Amino acid sequence: MKAMLLSLLFLGAAPSGPAPSSLPPEALGAPPLVDASPTAWSCTIDTLRAGKECVFEAEVPPARGANTDVESANIKLLKDASRALCSEAVSIARDGTPDPKLVAVCERKYADVVGRCGIEGNTPVVDAKGRFAPAARACYRALSSVLQDVQLMASVASTCCECAARSQCPGNGESCYAAVSRQQAGPTTLACMDERCHDACSMMLPPSASIPRQSPSRASQQHTDSAAL
């Protein structure tokens, strides 16, 4: 038994010399290997639609100066996607219920941004695989902001503004969406919504008691008094 223990100690003892290395010394100073292949996080129309974070990694040729044909192609490409993107943004936020008026608002806002997305024709806005170019970063962010704003309007203001339009409340129409979603509707509009569209607008209305009410006009008051007599 003693002999066995001694043999195990000798076998497990560390060698006296330097530990052998499986890598040559020059390997430790070699530059890291980079995988430049596209990832699943590339910025595309799909990530724009979904509002996902992404990476601008398109493979585009070097910029060769302004080119009006490329600029026009960039703008046309993004404009062609506006109808689908805006319709989906509204429909998803409303569980499949359309709102043509809000879609029109979205398309107009989207078109205003796209007009600045030609990036002067220096490079295609997307590459052959549909990935947004790094130079289109500001354009992509602006378009994403439009779609997110519209989704917010669809979620909190669409049903209310539809009712306000049917009820002929002041401040209805396209301006209603922004005013309601930002809680900037005027007192007269709020009073009308509270009276005629309370259920549809309840999520965005302040307490009824806090809504300023216009006092009846002198003529209306006189008419009421006369009727009472």
Rank of each mutant, 00 (worst) to 15 (best):
A209Q: 15
E88H: 13
L9V: 15
S16L: 12
L190W: 07
A13L: 13
S91R: 10
A133T: 15
M204Y: 00
T159I: 04
D127E: 10
V126L: 05
M1E: 13
C54P: 01
A136K: 02
S217V: 00
P25N: 05
L77R: 06
S91Y: 09
S217W: 03
S208M: 03
C201T: 12
G17Y: 12
P124F: 04
V114T: 08
A73T: 10
P98A: 15
A93G: 10
K2N: 11
P187Y: 04
A40Y: 01
M1N: 12
D99I: 00
K101Y: 05
A164Q: 13
E71T: 08
A3C: 07
R141P: 00
P31H: 12
A27Y: 11
D127Q: 08
G65M: 09
K109I: 00
P31Q: 10
A128C: 03
L205G: 04
I211T: 04
A30E: 13
V90A: 12
R94P: 03
V125K: 00
L77N: 10
G121W: 04
E195C: 03
R131V: 03
A14W: 06
S82C: 11
S144M: 09
M203Q: 10
C176I: 13
M1V: 13
A19C: 10
E26Y: 06
R213N: 06
